[in-house]
Nucleic acid binder design. Structure first.
Length: 415
RNA sequence: CGGGGCGUAGUAUAGUGGUAGUAUACUUGCUUUGGGAGCAUGUGGUCCGAGUUCGAUUCUCGGCGCCCCGACCA
């Protein structure tokens, strides 16, 4: 993409109503636009990052048997009444709306009801199980107080997978696979070294759920981390009995602030019962399906990555999710340099490399500052010097390291 | 949902019961050209409503919106 064609611009200053680093940098860089409290639009650069994160999650979900679909945003009140979650006294942050004919609809708040209801129609035999459908979708929650930039909003984009298993052991086996998939995801998006699988409250059907908590001072949650084993416990479930059952020593735990970037939950028959979601086993006996839920908020994940990986000059995107792999920066206006930059741009595209081409007629300082802020991993500088040397000046965003590379070397590195 | 703070140009800020200022961004021109360059030039603003007043951006009330702390967070 040519930078001259991008309508967004960087800003030197963040709006005063944003105090969190993630929102400041994402707004300054032109990744997101704030519509209202807790509601953000994704601008071209931001969408590219979200799409990259989405693809990594998709690959990992598919790897463990996930099958992608899409449930509706408008929700039928009836299915929520089955689980007693329609009443505002039970779920107080619904967004609801009226139908012209007098009925009511809800805006998707979470997906358990939708999935249970759909799967009921297709699951009737042990031969139909297990299944692991998931979707990426917008979720709406009428939060009384939004906070922390894009980390906690009224509208957000998430991935939710639901597991439908025949019995506990089948469920548990998948649950363990999901943990690994989640760890892979957080590794691949660049925050694996800061993200811990954390014991959290489990509800009625299991002792614990598991959260994936990324350690950062701006986190909303407090976790207790055993640094040696990497085991963490959410403060909400920390007590002597739990410590004992997990074999942890309170003295060795370190208190940390963290952001919950994902969570997985055993649901047991909480939803199967109200929906009569059951199947016939080999003996023709009716059995309830065992469910689990597995969620990741993509916007929150993007915000977390910005929080933990940015520096004083701007965002430092990991290669895996950067809006572009390389930032080609043309300096100066002489025809030779321009020609070389144009040729290089076309060549890189031909080679399948995602490149952002700063072809604007602005000063070098501004281009460098923008490039730092936007945070594309590899910067390729084309200027008078480059024309003379027939090699490119390369700057690595994360390390700041500068090197010279030929076009061939560059292409093989970027591929 | 309790408490606190705040609404002035695209953005960041100053100020005033009587013509609203600065920076930046934007227009145009000249000079510049490897870390947000300089000079000149032009455009653009008091959240909404009511009240007090000769006159309100300023004071009062109401509304709307935003931020922060706490509670909540399936």
């Amino acid at each position: 993409m040519r930078q001259s064609q991008l309508f967004t611009k960087t800003r030197k200053e963040a709006p005063k109503d944003e105090v969190s680093k993630n929102a400041e940098l994402l707004i300054r860089g032109g990744f997101v636009h704030k519509e209202m409290a807790g509601v953000y639009s994704y601008l071209p650069l931001g969408l590219r990052v979200i799409k990259n994160i989405e693809q990594i999650i998709r690959e990992e979900m598919n790897e463990i048997g996930g099958i992608e679909m899409k449930t509706s945003i408008l929700q039928n009140k009836e299915i929520w009444e089955k689980t007693n979650r329609w009443d505002d006294a039970v779920v107080d942050n619904w967004f609801k709306s009226k139908l012209k004919n007098g009925g009511e609809v809800g805006l998707s708040f979470t997906n358990e009801e939708a999935y249970s209801n759909i799967l009921k129609q297709y699951v009737s035999s042990y031969k139909d199980l297990p299944v692991y459908p998931y979707d990426f979708k917008e979720i709406f929650r009428n939060e009384v107080r939004t906070k922390s930039g894009i980390m906690r909003g009224r509208e957000f984009y998430w991935k939710a997978l639901y597991s439908f298993s025949k019995d506990e052991s089948e469920h548990n086996a998948f649950y363990e696979k999901a943990k690994v998939a989640y760890q892979n995801i957080f590794k691949r998006v660049g925050i694996g070294h800061l993200t811990y699988e954390t014991f959290a409250s489990g509800g009625v059907f299991s002792k614990f759920s598991h959260e994936f908590q990324t350690v950062t001072p701006v986190g909303e949650d407090t976790i207790y981390l055993d640094e040696k084993s990497g085991v963490a416990i959410n403060k909400e479930v920390l007590n002597d009995e739990v410590l004992k059952s997990l074999g942890l020593d309170r003295e060795k735990l370190v208190e940390q602030k963290a952001i919950e970037v994902g969570n997985i939950f055993s649901l047991g028959t909480r939803f199967a019962e109200p929906f009569d979601l059951n199947y016939k086993n080999e003996n023709g006996e009716e059995q309830l399906v065992i469910m689990g839920s597995y969620g990741i908020g993509l916007g929150r994940l993007m915000g977390t990555i910005v929080e933990v990986l940015s520096d004083e000059n701007g965002i430092v995107w990991p290669k895996s999710i950067a809006p572009f792999r390389a930032h080609l920066v043309l300096l100066g206006s002489n025809d030779e340099a321009k020609d070389l930059a144009e040729k290089t741009y076309k060549k890189l595209i031909q080679e399948g490399i995602e490149v952002f081409f700063d072809d604007r007629d602005v000063r070098a300082g501004e281009k460098f500052a923008d490039s730092d802020l936007i945070g594309i991993p590899t910067r390729i500088i084309v200027g008078d010097k480059t024309v003379e040397n027939s090699s490119f000046e390369i700057k690595d965003r994360a390390s700041g390291e500068v090197s010279q590379k030929t076009l061939e070397e560059l292409i093989s590195e970027l591929k």
